[in-house]
Design a protein around this nucleic acid. Structure first.
Length: 513
RNA sequence: GGCCCGUUCGUCUAUCGGUUAGGACAAAAGAUUUUCAUUCUUUAAAGAGGGGUUCGACUCCCCUACGGGCUACCA
């Protein structure tokens, strides 16, 4: 039985999507495209208490920024299974819960929070696992212990109830995980999970299984944190009689904190010195900001590439992959089993590779927006900006660094690298600068070749060696000790500006020594 | 605590019983670059521990240790 591959990414809108979630979405996307299938985005908003305004839009914007486009679902155009937001599917879950009750696979439970608490306290005191299971269910207030009349009375009365799954006793549940191989659990360890909550919403377990069934999902690719509840899901498919179309499971290794302990969490925010979110985010309740990859100067292609390699590799030496290339190369059996720590250095390297590949035209907007911020955007031509990009491109690792490395093209330096001044300035310098200025004045064509020739001529005349002056010359023109080839910088900023900077140095620097 | 999953250089990883255990990032050294960056060359760096199975184990099995996840009317 060959079914069209259909996978889904099903986040909860409880905050910004963190990169672990992004990677899960990416692997789903890659898998779907690899097999010519569908990738859908479903929003699992069954917990109304944790709903965060803006989170859903954030998730969609993040995926779009990264190019991880869904073929159907919220934000990407509804498909045949709309709605894709579980809160809007609310009505249909109850029927499924009732179906299970009718089959004797689930039951009503009327226990209050206090009663549940008491039960747990009691069991803990006697050193027994505190769970609502085959043993304890007989001591609680549910449709298994209460008379039919009493249950009906309570239901008619509108008493609060939940629907719990009646877990079979001492049963070995096995399934073959696409990444981990055979995994088995004993139902003794599990509890009678709530399937349907007293607020009329399903829990994750019910909604997830029902929706995956209805949406004809063939592969469930999700984080390892779901592994312990996978047997419950398997049992649910059985209880519904859907075992023949049960999706295959693939539980992804977790993304760990770089400093060692624990999985990367939303709460890590900026504490780690690198973004854990794709986009900037501000918590609507606390106003607390969190930074994102986009704003930190990462390119979406780089983020996709580096995330793909956290827990997967192609088995070849190739490390740089475009999204289509990843689709080609991806396979679940090359996903590793153990958690991966995020490595900031490697992330930076990936980004650097992509920044270098950028055309000047593609890089220019990042510089232009910095110019707008500096109020200088009117003063320079597109062509000039493009040339600056070309010169500075290989110096930067992140797009947002471009201004730091190129501001002297637009603004004459106000300060000079002190170490270089201290080391290289001497009494012979002013005369040399004067000659340089004179030579430059005579140039009709101000190119890096003519500038260099004029520079060499002045050096020779003053009997100064290049190694004693070039870096000082650089500092005089740019203010800083490093950068692209100096004569090209001079040629770009032009004759007048270069001369003006020399004059400025002549008047400013001697007084500072 | 219980259950489940995992464990190769500092980090991401290759290896699917026989290799001098390979690559990348980071680190160190050198060359190139008038500078910085780049680039190139080189160096250092790993199978958690203990038992088996086998002619042979990083690879298969068991135990221990360690790490992680789950243990809600959260997902």
């Amino acid at each position: 039985m060959d079914r069209r591959v259909r996978v889904r990414f099903a986040p909860s809108p409880t905050g910004p999507l963190h990169i672990g979630g992004v990677r899960t979405a990416l692997y789903n996307y890659l898998f779907a495209h690899k097999h010519g299938g569908d990738f859908l985005l479903r929003i699992e908003d069954t917990d109304q208490t944790r709903f965060v305004p803006g989170a859903e839009a954030y998730i969609i914007e993040s995926l779009k920024w990264l190019g991880i486009e869904a073929s159907e679902g919220i934000g990407f155009g509804d498909g045949p299974h709309a709605p894709y937001r579980q809160s809007e599917r609310k009505a249909m879950y109850k029927d499924f819960a009732m179906q299970l009750i009718a089959n004797g696979q689930a039951y009503y439970a009327f226990d209050t929070a206090e009663e549940l608490e008491q039960m747990r306290e009691r069991l803990k005191a006697s050193n027994v696992d505190a769970k609502y299971d085959a043993i304890t269910r007989g001591t609680m207030k549910n449709s298994l212990t209460l008379s039919e009349d009493e249950v009906n009375r309570r239901l008619e009365n509108g008493d609060a109830y939940v629907v719990r799954f009646k877990l079979p006793r001492k049963e070995e549940v096995k399934f073959e995980d696409e990444i981990r191989g055979w995994v088995s659990f004993n139902t003794n360890q599990l509890d009678d999970k709530v399937l349907y909550k007293s607020d009329g919403m399903p829990t994750y377990h019910l909604a997830n299984v029902v929706d995956d069934y209805l949406m004809q999902i063939t592969h469930v690719i999700r984080g390892e944190e779901w592994l312990p509840s996978a047997p419950l899901h398997v049992l649910l498919y059985r209880a519904f009689g859907w075992e023949n179309v049960m999706p295959k499971f693939a539980h992804l290794p977790l993304l760990l904190k770089p400093e060692g302990n624990g999985k990367l969490s939303k709460r890590d925010g900026d504490r780690l010195g690198f973004p854990v979110f794709p986009l900037n985010w501000q918590d609507p309740f606390t106003q607390e900001p969190s930074s994102g990859y986009r704003e930190a100067g990462y390119l979406p292609e780089a983020v996709v590439n580096l995330l793909a390699f956290l827990g997967w590799n192609p088995g070849t030496q190739q490390e740089l992959f475009t999204l289509p290339e990843l689709v080609q190369a991806f396979s679940l059996d090359r996903v590793s089993k153990s958690g991966a720590k995020f490595d900031q250095n490697k992330a930076k390297w990936f980004n650097q590779q992509y920044v270098r590949k950028l055309s000047d035209e593609a890089l220019a907007p990042f510089l232009s927006s910095a110019l707008v911020n500096a109020g200088l955007n009117q003063d320079f031509s597109d062509d000039f900006v493009l040339k600056v990009c070309s010169l500075v491109k290989e110096k930067i690792s992140f797009t947002k660094e471009i201004w730091d490395y190129s501001n002297y093209f637009f603004i004459a330096p106000k300060t000079y690298d002190e170490q270089v001044i201290k080391k290289k300035w001497s009494d012979k310098i002013p005369a040399l600068l004067l000659d340089l200025i004179a030579n430059f004045e005579q140039l009709d064509s101000f190119t890096h070749e003519t500038v260099e020739a004029a520079y060499l001529q002045a050096l020779a005349k003053n009997e100064i060696l290049g190694k004693d002056f070039l870096q000082l010359f650089r500092v005089i023109v740019t203010g800083v000790a490093g950068g692209p080839p100096l004569f090209e910088i001079a040629a770009l900023i032009g004759k007048q500006e270069t001369i003006s900077r020399l004059n400025h140095a002549l008047t400013q620097i001697p007084s500072k020594i």
